[in-house]
Amino acid sequence: MKTLSKAVLRLHLLCIFFAIGSFVWGYHIGILSSVLVHPGFRRAMGYPTASEKGVITAIYYLGTWVSYIFVSHPVSDRLGRRYAALIGIIVVAIATAFEAGANGPGAYSILIVGRIISGLGIGMISTSVPLYQSEVAPAGKRGKYVVLNHVGFVVGLASGFW
């Protein structure tokens, strides 16, 4: 059996960690279709209309777009890819707290704020993580390592839809 060097083992663990993170991101996107029709969610949100459900879905993507255009590049260049991803994770954790805590009067507004903030964080993560992976992976094997990030996303998305 071939033993891995410490550096290669660390790279494998790092990419697996990123794949798990991407799984959660994909699951977050995929599960929304089930959440929007769940009776408990509908009750907590005050029975949102079809338009409000559309805004709940779309506002997340507006947040990611704003992050892609205005936030992730300057943060990654100033702080580095690793710290940009860390900040993105913190932003998503804060946003998830907003989303999970949305209930009662004003729940729709709180959820919208959480979805926008979540989109901003995901924009930072989804741009900085593959770049960081490609920077730390050996040149000849970058595709092999970076694709784990995308595989994790697709598996998470499929799990959320399932």
Rank of each mutant, 00 (worst) to 15 (best):
1 M>G: 13
5 S>W: 07
5 S>N: 14
6 K>A: 15
7 A>S: 13
7 A>C: 04
10 R>N: 14
10 R>T: 13
12 H>Y: 14
12 H>T: 06
15 C>F: 05
15 C>G: 06
16 I>F: 11
17 F>Q: 11
17 F>W: 12
18 F>T: 15
25 W>A: 06
25 W>I: 07
25 W>F: 14
26 G>M: 08
30 G>N: 03
30 G>Q: 00
31 I>T: 08
31 I>L: 12
33 S>Q: 10
33 S>A: 13
34 S>H: 11
35 V>T: 11
35 V>H: 07
37 V>P: 02
38 H>Y: 15
38 H>K: 12
39 P>S: 11
40 G>M: 05
41 F>W: 08
42 R>T: 12
43 R>C: 05
43 R>I: 13
43 R>A: 15
45 M>W: 06
48 P>G: 14
49 T>V: 13
50 A>L: 07
50 A>S: 15
51 S>T: 15
53 K>N: 13
53 K>C: 11
54 G>R: 04
54 G>L: 09
55 V>H: 09
55 V>Y: 06
55 V>N: 09
56 I>C: 04
59 I>P: 01
59 I>E: 02
60 Y>P: 05
60 Y>F: 15
62 L>H: 03
62 L>Y: 06
63 G>W: 05
64 T>K: 03
70 F>G: 14
71 V>C: 06
72 S>F: 08
73 H>Q: 05
77 D>C: 02
77 D>I: 01
77 D>F: 03
78 R>S: 13
79 L>T: 04
80 G>A: 09
81 R>P: 00
82 R>M: 03
82 R>H: 02
83 Y>A: 12
87 I>C: 10
90 I>H: 03
90 I>T: 11
90 I>W: 09
92 V>R: 00
92 V>H: 05
92 V>Q: 01
95 A>S: 11
95 A>I: 02
97 A>M: 12
99 E>M: 15
101 G>N: 12
101 G>A: 07
102 A>I: 03
102 A>P: 07
103 N>W: 14
105 P>V: 13
105 P>L: 07
106 G>Y: 12
106 G>P: 05
108 Y>C: 05
109 S>A: 15
110 I>W: 10
111 L>M: 10
111 L>I: 00
115 R>A: 00
116 I>T: 09
118 S>W: 02
119 G>H: 06
119 G>T: 07
120 L>N: 01
120 L>I: 13
121 G>Q: 02
122 I>G: 00
123 G>W: 00
125 I>W: 03
126 S>I: 00
128 S>A: 14
133 Q>V: 15
136 V>L: 11
137 A>K: 06
139 A>E: 13
143 G>L: 07
143 G>D: 10
144 K>A: 13
147 V>A: 15
149 N>Y: 14
152 G>L: 04
153 F>A: 08
154 V>K: 06
155 V>D: 09
157 L>N: 10
159 S>C: 14
161 F>I: 10
